[in-house]
Design a protein around this nucleic acid. Structure first.
Lengths: 146, 146
DNA sequence: CGACTTTAGTCTGATATCGTACATTCTGGT
DNA sequence: ACCAGAATGTACGATATCAGACTAAAGTCG
């Protein structure tokens, strides 16, 4: 019914990547909100998941694990703080650094995060099949290597 | 050498999508700049490509073709205008609307866009192969359908 | 024509992330 | 102890995009 400008549209890889990424975040936000954690933005995962593995990390360490820049970490940690999910305290051994700690609220969120992530993974599996899902991950890494 | 927190890291689909999308835009920006069009941001493609197909579109029409919201179009068209790539004029038939036109500079950019897009496509093909590239596009559409 | 609805674009503020530049603090070598 | 250099985080501004609320102009229908 329409197919003139495919380069600018649905077959443009940049377009597909952007939209898929956007949509994924949308899915996360909806599910978190539906379970009573509307304040948890998708990006907070970059802070919370590392801290679920090991609480009390420094900001730079979180950034490394999530592969985000220091500036982004500054911003994200402040937002998480504002929303009552983490607390910072100066590192006693290094007065430049901060230790970031999960709050009770964040610990309550942990099972929700696990559940949502599992649910989405299941849905991806249902939509794509195991083979395609694996191929997708590989292909995305390939794109990052360009 | 490291594999404790895979959920928060390289195998998280959200992470891969975000990074791949980011990287793709990076590739575009670098290549445009290298060819003397440093002012052309990756996002401008959403405005320019539709106009390459048909000049004089209205903002809403561009938005529809690029699947971007009206607010985003307002912003993008202004930036393109600021950078000398498009000009707007009121639509004589509808005084709410604007007609967006390419400037000479944008027309000079067209072959560059084509070339860069072709080059990247070639590189994707080399990195993934035709089969994987197709599968990637399909999988991304699948994710968008979740 | 006048009231209702729809359409075009804008405004404000939020989300997600980076680059460049910087102040502070730590560290290793003399 | 001192200083040069590395590391930690912040400031500012840019890029990319949306949601909700709004203005103004157009279209529709009685």
């Amino acid at each position: 019914m329409a197919s003139r400008a495919d380069r600018s549209d649905t077959n443009n890889l940049g377009f597909l990547l952007a939209k898929a990424s956007q949509h994924w975040n949308q899915l996360l936000a909806e599910r978190f909100a539906a379970r009573g954690f509307a304040e948890v933005r998708p990006s907070y995962g970059s802070v919370l998941l590392p801290l679920f593995e090991q609480d009390g990390l420094r900001m730079g360490e979180i950034g490394q694990r999530a592969r985000l820049s220091k500036q982004t970490m500054t911003t994200l940690v402040r937002l998480c703080e504002r929303d009552g999910l983490v607390a910072r305290e100066r590192d006693p051994d290094d007065s430049r650094a901060f230790r970031v700690h999960l709050t009770e609220r964040a610990r309550e969120f942990r099972p929700v995060a696990d559940e949502v992530l599992r649910e989405l993974d299941t849905r991806v599996l249902a939509a794509l099949g195991q083979r395609q899902r694996q191929a997708l991950a590989r292909a995305l890494k390939g794109v990052m290597g360009l």
